[in-house]
Nucleic acid binder design. Structure first.
Lengths: 126, 126
DNA sequence: TTCTTATATCGACAGTCGTCAATCTAGTAG
DNA sequence: CTACTAGATTGACGACTGTCGATATAAGAA
């Protein structure tokens, strides 16, 4: 990070010096752009969505009338083993997209309100 | 999908039969949810965004005043080798997020208008 | 033509990811 | 208590991904 900040601070001057040789492809942006840490965090959110089966899980939970689904209802339609579904659900919970609530024998998953909109907002603020 | 419809159509009865045994976790959604193909396609879009360096590339292109950036300006600030940047740019172009235009010696990349919003829309229509 | 430079492509390697079988944990029923 | 069941965790394996060095391509300069 400190490396990037330092680098970007001097980029303009460096380009100006070398311009009289051969260069002149274009004017580099003065904006430091997304930092490595910000990019890492945002990419993490998209990683959670970058799997078809996780998208289907989210879709099922979202479509559920009660707003929550138990794992049994999530395992069947996906044609995946129970450990695999559990693994995907864990990733979605860790990403802050799903809530997990255990009641008795069963575990119920529900959408975290506004979480998907928040991810959509990440795109606008790139 | 037809399988799901069939399944869901009879789930109520099935549950009713087994209900007097042990079951009754919850009412499964009647909605067929996202199909495997739709999910695959949407996941592909998020995969393109699921890398911090690709997000930074998009950020730099977006922040550029002229609306386009040449590869040289994209390689430096990312601290990556030139082939790697070229590889990431290819993924973003293939995902329909960036346009590539070669003028003379240099290649210029620009945001495809509305492409990011379209991805954001995918989240709303899950 | 030959030389140089910008960018893309290829091949290889390490690390990550999705999946499953086996096991563990924690509730419920008897 | 034991037996059963829902779900999570572990370990392993194959597939995919990000990265780089080397090379190829293509365009301008000499």
């Amino acid at each position: 990070m400190d490396v990037n900040l330092l680098h970007n601070g001097y980029v303009t001057a460096t380009v100006a010096v070398e311009a009289n040789e051969t260069d002149a492809c274009c004017i580099p942006s003065v904006v430091p752009a997304l930092s490595a840490e910000e990019a890492q965090g945002k990419a993490q959110a998209f990683k959670a969505l970058a799997d078809p089966n996780r998208l289907r899980l989210l879709s099922i939970v979202k479509a559920s009338e009660s707003g929550e689904s138990c794992v049994c209802d999530l395992t069947e339609p996906l044609d995946l083993g129970q450990p695999t579904v559990s693994h995907h659900l864990r990733i979605l919970v860790d990403a802050g997209l799903l809530n997990r609530e255990k009641r008795g024998t069963w575990a119920y998953y529900s959408l975290v309100p506004g979480a998907l909109d928040e991810v959509a907002g990440l795109l606008a603020s790139l």
